[in-house]
């Protein structure tokens, strides 16, 4: 390698700094942030998307609370709202992760991926940047939803610290699922496919869980599935924290799920990206 470098610097001495390729963790983060900004910059411009992204969670909160709120009782909870709303928060941030797959599929289809892959940035930056920008978008959606929930009577029964921890757990889980979506978005052939593939498994994931009802009320064969669902674990952890109830192992289990999913799917997605080609 040293011989190559010498030949090159001799031939292009005037341009050697111009073509420098900085490496290291700081630059990986910086490259990823540059990519994240590519997406974040657009959010305030696309008013329609912004309205849609905030109306949807508001609609979910209002629909579930007023439609189901009166007819469902959950043991141990005075009001269904206190049980339900953490579940809706969890479902909304999980749905928000679907943007990651669709966005990556778009870059792939528009041929932008070739340009991005031919740039001297960290190869992981495109996917990492996308997941970071979607996390930021999800935080925005979450804030709106939280304000609406508080306005219609939701209360933090625990400490603010617990409420903060619950929120972080939910956002971390949505970030983990962003990586699952990333892999799917990079694997399918079209944006439309990414859209359907991204949403289809969200319904069983979020409904066969403790988000809306107590799994004990489900048929015998379904209950163990709902109990084992990582979405149940995360929802239970967040719910207990918001309500100031004992959390048991749920917090640690949620963290383990999220970190595990991130570890596996970020490795797979980044490998997939490096081999990706324009559609």
């Amino acid at each position: 390698m040293s011989t190559t470098t010498t030949t090159v610097s001799a031939a292009t001495s005037s341009t050697s700094t111009r073509h420098a390729v900085p490496t290291g963790p700081v630059w990986i983060v910086r490259d990823a942030w540059t990519e994240a900004l590519r997406h974040l910059r657009i959010i305030p411009r696309n008013i329609e998307l912004l309205i849609f992204a905030t109306v949807q969670p508001i609609m979910f909160v209002v629909l579930f609370v007023y439609v189901f709120g009166g007819s469902i009782e959950v043991p141990g909870f005075d009001s269904y709202n206190q049980y339900l709303l953490p579940g809706i928060f969890a479902q909304s941030v999980v749905f928000g992760s679907a943007f990651t797959g669709v966005g990556l599929a778009e870059d792939l289809q528009k041929g932008l991926i070739d340009r991005l892959r031919s740039l001297p940035m960290a190869q992981s930056a495109v996917v990492v940047g996308r997941t970071i920008s979607d996390l930021c978008r999800n935080m925005l959606t979450f804030s709106v939803m939280l304000v609406v929930a508080l306005a219609i009577g939701f209360r933090f029964e625990g400490t603010m610290l617990e409420a903060g921890a619950a929120t972080l757990l939910l956002l971390l889980f949505s970030y983990a699922l962003s990586w699952v979506q990333a892999l799917m978005g990079l694997s399918v052939k079209s944006v439309e496919a990414a859209n359907s593939a991204g949403f289809i498994w969200m319904f069983p994931l979020t409904f066969v869980s403790s988000a809306f009802v107590d799994p004990a009320t489900m048929p015998d064969w379904l209950e163990p599935i709902a109990d084992a669902n990582p979405f149940t674990v995360v929802t239970n952890a967040a719910r207990s924290l918001y309500n100031g109830l004992p959390v048991g192992n749920d917090v640690w289990l949620s963290l383990a799920w999220s970190v595990g999913i991130i570890a596996v799917f970020s490795t797979l997605s980044i490998r997939k990206f490096k081999r990706a080609t324009a559609a």
Binding site: N46, L112, D114
Partner: peptide, 17 residues
């Protein structure tokens, strides 16, 4: 990659910017 410029068959611009 630090030394090349590539213009592919598709006009690879970020349409939203």
């Amino acid at each position: 990659r630090a030394r090349i410029g590539l213009t592919g068959q598709y006009a690879a611009v970020e349409e939203r910017l």
